[in-house]
């Protein structure tokens, strides 16, 4: 009896330690970045362009670049991904074709992001002649996000009770009316949460935008979607590895990291709030 109890304690202890380890890592990262980055955060850091060979000034162009790229990413991947998920979960009969499609989506999710970058160069930059631009980079990130959005949206559709579909069909609704009016609204919180999380992940990616549109430094803000841009993750990469005075700009790099993390955190927080509010509306 004693030994069994001891086993129990040790087992729980190990599991709890593992869980705690994850949390500790997160906090160490957050603390490190906040401690070293907070000092440079100021209004001018957020609203000014880099100056003097990027050793002074702020990161406004990088914030704006990341913002617009993220919008392109969302505008491309959310409608496409959700539509694909509707097809897969509501229309497609289980069979060889759908098995193939699902396997492809899973594999797509496993493709390294740098490969997406190269693909983006081939397709968007060259073949479609969008050049290195916000558009090319946003679309490339959209491709990267697509498998995630399809998977989470399909998951969301699966949580819609069968009785909502059958109830609508029994009232003479067509398949499409059922999906549009009864399935989609209910799955919406899940879809939105998945989409925001996927997009916030894409906002922090460097490799896919590396060859498709991001620039080291630009003297002015992009004027159109076909211009090059600066982006937070790439700016961070430059400041911490490629700059001629790395030690001197270290605080600026940490400041950039902090802004990026806060941005992603806010996106995730939005996802959580939306999910919470809509869940409350649909379940009793």
């Amino acid at each position: 009896m004693k030994i069994k109890q001891l086993q129990q304690y040790i087992g729980f202890g190990i599991l709890a330690a593992c869980a705690l380890f994850v949390v500790i890592i997160l906090f160490v990262i957050l603390y490190d970045i906040a401690a070293q980055g907070l000092g440079v955060i100021s209004w001018s850091f957020l609203t000014e362009a880099p100056r003097a060979g990027m050793t002074e000034g702020g990161i406004l162009p990088a914030i704006i670049g990341t913002f617009f790229v993220t919008i392109i990413t969302a505008a491309f991947s959310v409608p496409l991904g959700v539509s694909a998920a509707i097809y897969l979960s509501e229309y497609a009969q289980e069979g060889l074709l759908t098995r193939w499609i699902r396997a492809s989506i899973r594999n797509l999710a496993g493709v390294p992001s740098i490969v997406y970058g190269l693909f983006g160069v081939a397709l968007f930059v060259r073949a479609l002649s969008f050049g290195t631009s916000i558009l090319s980079a946003g679309l490339t990130l959209g491709l990267l996000t697509l498998p995630w959005i399809i998977t989470t949206a399909e998951e969301a559709f699966r949580t819609v009770p069968r009785s909502y579909r059958d109830g609508a069909l029994a009232l003479g609704a067509t398949n499409w009316q059922t999906i549009w009016r009864n399935v989609l609204p209910y799955a919406f919180p899940g879809i939105l949460t998945g989409a925001i999380l996927g997009i916030s992940r894409a906002a922090g990616e460097t490799a896919p935008i590396l060859f498709t549109g991001v620039a080291f430094f630009l003297p002015q803000l992009p004027g159109s979607l076909l211009d090059q841009f600066m982006a937070l993750p790439y700016h961070l990469y430059i400041m911490s590895t490629q700059h001629h005075a790395i030690e001197a700009v270290r605080p600026l790099a940490y400041g950039t990291a902090l802004v990026l993390i806060v941005l992603v955190f806010f996106l995730n927080l939005t996802a959580i709030i939306i999910r919470y509010r809509l869940r409350k509306k649909y379940t009793r």
Binding site: S163, Y164, A170, G172, Q177, N182
Partner: peptide, 23 residues
């Protein structure tokens, strides 16, 4: 068809009835 378990849609009372008419 009336189902075994009541299955109102997660909408208002009014919208539940309007559903069949609107579609």
């Amino acid at each position: 068809l009336i189902f075994q378990k009541p299955n109102p849609f997660p909408k208002s009372i009014y919208d539940n009835i309007a559903f069949g008419l609107k579609i």
